[in-house]
Design a protein around this nucleic acid. Sequence first.
DNA 1: GAAACTGTGTGACCTACATCACAATTGAAA
DNA 2: TTTCAATTGTGATGTAGGTCACACAGTTTC
Lengths: 190, 190
Amino acid sequence: MQPKEILKEHVSKTITLTDEQFDYFFSHFTYKTFKKGQTMIGEGDKVDCEYFVLSGYLKSFFINDDMKMFILQFAMPTWWASDYNALYSGERATVNVDCITDAEVLCLTSKDREKLCREIHEGEHFFRWRTNKGYVATQKRLLSFMNNDAKHRYEELLAQYPTLYNIVPKQLIASYLGVSRETLSRLYHS
Amino acid sequence: MQPKEILKEHVSKTITLTDEQFDYFFSHFTYKTFKKGQTMIGEGDKVDCEYFVLSGYLKSFFINDDMKMFILQFAMPTWWASDYNALYSGERATVNVDCITDAEVLCLTSKDREKLCREIHEGEHFFRWRTNKGYVATQKRLLSFMNNDAKHRYEELLAQYPTLYNIVPKQLIASYLGVSRETLSRLYHS
DNA sequence: GAAACTGTGTGACCTACATCACAATTGAAA
DNA sequence: TTTCAATTGTGATGTAGGTCACACAGTTTC
């Protein structure tokens, strides 16, 4: 499937655009490819775009003072990724985004997103609902963090994203769950 | 200050509306008052509105199977509160909202919010940015949960909302931080 | 004023998970 | 095929924070 079709199908789940409107919408995106391991957003960078994943897997993560990694999100096809704090506020990146596998993405700059939102009312509606869903999902994850132990969270993750298990190294799964890789190893060997 | 002025000042931080537009916008809100301890949204309820706080303090929280409480958010004047998962999805409430102190609020139904978003482009813009900010804030809190210990999170909370300390019982602060009240007590007596 | 309730402090003990150390396995590169 | 690095498993030990128990405020109710 073509990038354009993938995006169209994704957007159509929330809003309805005429073909001309969608052509215009799509014209603001730039196609790019990245290699496994490549950094798309690094700490300290000026962040001016967000990525819509066409193929492959990304991760967005934070590195603390002890060089320990915490994964905020895995991004798979039709998901969006960026350092949204930086993107929305104009500050420098504190969150990194890189490729777990080779990946194809569509880039949308912040300027263009705001332009589209201004020019196409439905476009603003789309982005509002995208954030609404992200907000609720993040809140659920926060609750799970407070409420459940690591084993529970691990099972939750696998139930939700079974594909991750085979594609993503266990270390990264551990970083997402907020436990050490040793603890994760013990969890599923019992 | 009048409810209308409070909302206007709040909305004006993100968007610009003409007086007629704002009058229309405001006409969709309903003024209500609640007493300390009163429940605004209870588990299992059908959720059809969200609350804009004019005065007083609310909390939104989740109760798990062991009857343990986890606070998702405190809401203070000019903040919004609801069970957004339920509100956006149409499902029954899993999150409760109640009053920590007597409170005055403006209610906006989901139907009216969507109506306003359809009819006033700037309105949709406002609600998009409100959620954008909520999303980033929740993500930061999630990161803090993964990264920092309870003491650090406690100091973070006090630095951000110094007023909470005097108004909100320590038990609730503990529920927000995700620690037992005993642990919290030990934290700040050392 | 006694009684009853809600909020808080503090000790003793327990548990989930971290950390460190090193072994075993896999997989890419040469 | 050998080599080297990255990834994973596993034991021993440490610790933050949980749980239970009870004491001691303030505050509301009769």
